[in-house]
Design a protein around this nucleic acid. Structure first.
Lengths: 226, 226
DNA sequence: CCCCGGCGTTAAGAACGCATCAAAATCCGG
DNA sequence: CCGGATTTTGATGCGTTCTTAACGCCGGGG
């Protein structure tokens, strides 16, 4: 059974979607604000998320990036704003589709089917909790602990670790790291990486000068080994 | 660089898209009708397809299903028709997104980025894990192991091995190897290849002086035999 | 038979990339 | 506006990798 998380603060829309989706055989989860949405998504792992942008507590793009930190679940954005800037922002934050209100229910359902169809051909390894030796990395909560003790990371440090852990085992090129953490313009500033990898190792590795997890592949990039 | 196939019979739109996409660094392929579109897609394997529905020869949904028969390349549909029935039909035929004309260029670009991003996190079609005797070559992780032991390769060594393994069984010319690994200016420096092939054999072959995998084709090039 | 071109092998200096420390600049909350 | 945290920048030393050169081998053609 396909499970849909609907996030909207308007009870009327919520109700309409719930009825329509349930009638088509979907299991419907609901959340009325961004915080709850992140919580439900982390807890129940829906197959697809329908997200209204006008939420009372969090900015829509923050919800999207919060989810994208650990999950690749398809996100379909609903919004009353037709402004193309909003669309660009949401899509670039990681949304899969964007529909403006008022919308036709059959169109939403078709886009939902398209999103689920795409996702079903994808691999599933979406575990937001990663363990490696004495390290516990919670991608959903954005927290790292070592020997049970929480380790504080700065935003940049977390950005690097998250990217590496999400591709754990794989080699991540310097270009990709710089591009995704600092932005496309910084793709050649490989010096930043050396400074921050040293910091991460000091915080996470048992022996910072002989890394077990944060491995350098000279001339190519870095790798998280678990 | 990302390659986009644009399918439209209106030369004006074709031109506008071509200019805008090229300016963003995309490589643009074009087709003016459905038959050509299917042909170009099969021949050149673009990374994403932008498809106008109002084509002179074929119905739009037929083009989509024709593509979906063998390809999972993302398809973004453009259409002048706002009718929701058309959207449903196109999406259910296998399209990934649907934009109605007139559309904002920045919105199209954002949806394009979203489609490419999704596709790039999918299993890369071809098999990223190649086995040959006691060798395991993981193209995605950029890792090689021999008898279960990890073998460390330098960037240049990996570049050569990757190219040969991607074309395993086939002969790869010295020119191509030099051009892709060192750059177009080095296409005659065949000496480099001898040095590096010797290194690779020492690291990978059971008996470096009687290669089983990294085969020299004298005067022509090299071949990876599995 | 010997020369020559293409290949394999080895070795050494040059060039490059990395780790590390430290200080300056910037950001951010109170 | 201040002070601490964070990011950016600079400088140095070290190890690895690339480049280049030298030499031996083999087979084909003159």
């Amino acid at each position: 059974m396909t499970r849909v998380l609907v996030v909207d603060d308007d009870p009327q829309i919520l109700r309409a979607l719930k009825i329509n989706l349930a009638a088509r055989g979907y299991t419907v989860l609901v959340a009325s604000d961004g915080t709850k949405a992140l919580h439900v998504a982390a807890h129940d792992h829906p197959d697809v998320i329908v997200l209204d942008l006008g939420l009372p507590d969090l900015d829509g793009t923050d919800v999207i990036s919060g989810l994208r930190g650990w999950s690749t679940t398809p996100i379909i954005v609903l919004s009353a704003r037709t402004d193309s800037g909003d669309k660009v922002e949401a899509l670039d934050a990681g949304a899969d589709d964007y529909i403006t209100k008022p919308f036709g229910m059959d169109e939403l359902l078709a886009r939902l089917r398209a999103a689920v169809r795409r996702a079903s051909t994808r691999p599933t390894g979406n575990d937001p909790l990663v363990q490696a030796g004495e390290l516990y990395i919670d991608l959903a909560a954005k927290q790292v602990s070592r020997d049970g003790m929480l380790v504080h990371l700065t935003p940049t440090e977390w950005g690097i670790l998250e990217l590496l852990v999400r591709h754990r085992g794989k080699l991540v090129s310097q270009r990709q790291l710089l591009g995704e953490v600092w932005g496309p313009r910084y793709q050649t500033e490989s010096h930043y990486l050396r400074v921050y990898l040293a910091q991460l190792r000091r915080k996470l590795e048992p022996d910072a000068s002989h890394p077990r997890y944060l491995i350098t592949e000279p001339g190519m990039g870095y790798r998280f080994r678990s």
